[in-house]
Amino acid sequence: MEVQQDSIFKLGFDENAKELLKSLALWAKICSVCAFIGYGINLIVAFLGRGNSRLSEESFNAVSTANYSRAGAIASALISAAIGCAINYFLYRFSIETNRGVNNLDQFQLNEGFANLKTYFKILGIILVIALILFGLVFLGVLASGGVKEY
């Protein structure tokens, strides 16, 4: 007699899918860790990088301009690090939870991993929407200013 163990789930994770998920989790971890280190280095460069050039300036205006440029560099590095770390945190969580889920055959952890992947792409999508809106506004602004000049 043949014992048939049909699962109620037709779609599963066969050996190939498990290997793909492990590899996926590994590369996702590489991406997120590289991003975290990169943001840290960018912050260090922003905080320390322009300090020497400021001392070399002689006139007050030049010092003031250098200060503004340094403040801008620090602000942009801080903003990009904050947004980037928030996004990559979910990618890192995806890699950890998915790897654990596959290794321990834990459905709950695997689903937690996929939830983090969903959040990662959701944030990317929202940022893309915001970027597209800003781009559209700038484009309209340029068109409007061109029209006003012609008028």
Binding site: V3, Q5, S7, F9, L11, G12, F13, K18, G101, V102, L105, D106, Q107, L110, N111, F114, A115, L117, K118, F121, K122, L124, G125, L128
Partner: peptide
Amino acid sequence: ASNEPLIDIHVDDQTTSLLKETTKWTRFI
């Protein structure tokens, strides 16, 4: 006897829902 382990990971309802929502965002991006 089946060689498959008794406990295994599957694409259950929650996984399906999560993956479907993920694919919506990835398609848009």
